[in-house]
Amino acid sequence: MSPLLEARHVSKSFGGVQALKEVSLTIGAGEIYGLIGPNGAGKTTFFNVLTGLYPRFAGEVRFAGEALDLGSPHRVAQAGIARTFQNIRLFGNMTARENVMVGRHPRTRANVVGAVLRSRATRDEEAAIRRRADELLRYVGIAHHADAIARHLPYGDQRRLEIARALATEPKLLALDEPAAGMNATETEALKALIEGLRADGLTVLLIEHDVKLVMGLCDRVAVLDYGEKIAEDVPAVVRKDAKVIEAYLGG
């Protein structure tokens, strides 16, 4: 399996606090890769570095064979990484459809001139953006909410909408930050099917999740962070039995 993402010695500190210490990990193309660990272990910090939200960090990230420019989020999106958030961050005042349409931004090009002149190409592109957005809303199962204002959606549907919006950017790597948080068993099962479907469609998934059962059942490989350091990385069956992991996170 060729590596899609290689993080090398990634460190990040806030003031005196070292949130990430020399974290290196490699995610293969087509993998579902889990990132677990106790609260405050640095999982979300890693996501934030990976998506350009913290431009100042140490280390290097290679993506699809090239050095990834983590200077600003829009270049990361352009390169093919999309994410969702632990605490949902939708564009609350826009409709569900519009949220997904914004996600088409890095793969479309209409500029201000085209918009003013309403050129043929611009109108066609706009129609295509809309069609794709509706497809994605259907794909995650919330087509009936297309015209609803995002912040009015039920919680679980907001999570789905975030995934649809992320998918709209046509990522190679989809990073999900605790997608099952606050979901009931049925919703979690549907989420699992959704993620498996995404992988079947050729996507690589990086997953932060506290639902150990979900992680172990879904992921090909799992890395464990504790106090900003990677303490284990392997297939779920091995990680589950790792003494350090049990002590730090899984418990006896």
């Binding site: 939200l53 989020p73 961050r89 826009m94 914004v102 996600g103 931004h105 890095p106 709209a168 950017t169």
Partner: peptide, 13 residues
């Protein structure tokens, strides 16, 4: 609404 999140959607704020 949110420049950072718009950035993650590929919008150059």
């Amino acid at each position: 609404e949110n420049p950072a999140i718009a950035g993650l959607m590929g919008v150059d704020a």
